[in-house]
Amino acid sequence: MTSEGQRSGGGRWLRLHSPNVRVCHWINVIACVYLFLSGVHIFLDFPELYWGHTGYQGHPAIFKLSDWGLSWDEAGVLGNRMWGRNYHFTFAWVFLINGLVYAGWNLARGHFRRNMLPRRTELTRRHLWAELCEHLRWPRRTHESTHRYGTLQKLSYMLLIFVYVPLMVLTGIAQSPGITAAVPQLLDMFGGRQTARSLHTFGTVLLVLFVVVHLLEVAAAGVVNRVRSMFTGNLRVPEGES
């Protein structure tokens, strides 16, 4: 992941992100923003969630937006399922192809195995607890903002990439009458189309939380330096830091 670059000023530059990671990251940002906005549009056009194979107005719901102060009609004015569907499926393809390129490339290059797979010694309860305590300390110790992934970071990225994303794709296509005709196992996997739709929506909320934490972490580690490194690949390490 890192190689030492030239020294400049009062510090040195570390080669942090490969071109593949940088390009895929920003394409992913665009795709996720569109997926989120278009998903909200689709949801607002039918702002209730159900469990099982069926769900419609009048059917017992597990979530109703009207319980939260936004009536069906008000939501309908805000949402637009046509715009939502067109852009959701378009950027689902962008997201999927970009994700496969990213995952395939970095599996082949060993990036996941080398830098993101937690080592056995990192997975002990004591180590994880110590790292969590250290991580939540404020103000942060400077040596924490280094160029290596922490165990918690490794775990969240691995879960995100290899568990969360596949589940979001599967709960998405489990709602399609065309795909479930050919692959009915998708319906059984989640216990019904409406369950898949609800999980897909809850997953969206989880992703928003992830992005909030992700942005807070970037802020804590130095916005300019970190965002710049996602464009140029290089992270500036001040004098005296490892």
């Binding site: 689709i42 949801f43 056009d45 039918f46 194979h53 069926t54 769900g55 419609y56 107005q57 059917h59 399922r81 569907r85 709602q175 399609s176 009458p177 189309r193 409406q194 739709r197």
Partner: peptide
């Protein structure tokens, strides 16, 4: 399966 999101059997 309605494109709005509801489904009924």
């Amino acid at each position: 399966v309605c494109e709005q999101g509801w489904s009924a059997i």
